[in-house]
Design a protein around this nucleic acid. Sequence first.
DNA 1: CGGTAGGTTGATTGAGATCAATGGCCGTGG
DNA 2: CCACGGCCATTGATCTCAATCAACCTACCG
Lengths: 235, 235
Amino acid sequence: MSNNQALLDPNCQHCMMMPMCSEQAKEVCKHQQTPVVTHTHELKRREILYSYRDDFKCLFAVNYGALKTFHIDMNGQERIHQFYLPGEIIGLEAIHVGHHPYSAIALTSSSVCEIPFDNLTNFIAATPNLQKQLFNALSHRINVSHYVTASTAEQRLAGFLQDVCQRLHHHDATAAFELPMSRYDIGNYLGLAPETVSRLFTRFQQAALIQVQNKKIHIIDRNKLQWIAQEGMNA
Amino acid sequence: MSNNQALLDPNCQHCMMMPMCSEQAKEVCKHQQTPVVTHTHELKRREILYSYRDDFKCLFAVNYGALKTFHIDMNGQERIHQFYLPGEIIGLEAIHVGHHPYSAIALTSSSVCEIPFDNLTNFIAATPNLQKQLFNALSHRINVSHYVTASTAEQRLAGFLQDVCQRLHHHDATAAFELPMSRYDIGNYLGLAPETVSRLFTRFQQAALIQVQNKKIHIIDRNKLQWIAQEGMNA
DNA sequence: CGGTAGGTTGATTGAGATCAATGGCCGTGG
DNA sequence: CCACGGCCATTGATCTCAATCAACCTACCG
């Protein structure tokens, strides 16, 4: 798939790397003979994008689908580090060590744009006003996922739903979407047992905050969800 | 305190911003009339460096002492975001929003170098090989503090001690240092009650992993501490 | 010297983990 | 097409680790 085709994709609208795919950017690239986005990868569910300890050469921007990064601890247990939704950049944590500290795997059929990091830095050096863009992306990543350290399970899951909703660019009080990950994955990410996640979904549904049918989530009362994320359910 | 004086300080050896204070850097600065480190602030214990929502203009590098960033939630409860030890950079999370999302306060008598962000970006644009430095610093911050989401209290505290030890540049199997923060702060940061932190210190001491006397910590068996951080105490 | 914040230790409670059983969904192969 | 098997999800029963409540101690500061 070419760079141009990717630009036609509605998902590119929200991609942090979009400025690197602009007409202006492509002019610069043509000059340098080094495009920022070289090509895209199509991934099937459970297909590995890269593995723990692989050399860091490229960042990846999620075009569609969803991925997770994880590692396997000394007990053979999976520990999920982060989920990635369309428009988000995978691999930033590898910049300073030169290799990937986590493995990345597709949760659903997905497509990612490959961004060779050297091309990117060259490009940024040539267009300093875009340097800020990458700083912003990195700065942004420092702050994400507050809620995983929230005190109660309710707060964590409410925060998670809220976060996913936002990252899928649903801005209204009500929203419907499909969770790309299993209850096990959510639990793993939030430090909860999958059973607890399941029970909480039921409780949230009983409280008319959401409607759940398997992976389909319908957010009914987002304000209240936000409230719970910060205060807990009975506060 | 001048830039030169700061350079004489042994803490500067490990500062991520040291390249910005090099002779080469100062040459560039002289050219631009905009030094990277303008001056330093001396802070007393509990003195505020900046407050939540303050405009983001500067990063700060800890010269000596220690600080924490935090915010007060809707219940009036403090939530600690991060601790900062000598050589570390405060304020990176503000880059992409333009204002500080947390307040910063000194835990002990401290000194920080003020780094106006515009000066820094100008400087980096003028010396592209140092652009990488800031990318690295940001990338590094994405990965820190794993252990706060570890499953057991033991693992979290062991991970925390291990982390502090490393950030204070103790590389040996045994080490002694002073914790700059209270048990309440540690608990708050790790999502544990202060009583739990206290009990764990006692248990770690009984297991001959560490010696504790108030804030003075003596790491006796760092390997085992590392083990516990990953596997738990009885695994 | 008291006063106060911080630290330790003990007793009790509770949220969430774990164990266990069941049901639904989907992909695979006969 | 249906049947089987595996994975995922839900629900219930029990247990456990850490929170909470409470008392007391200690260090530091005016």
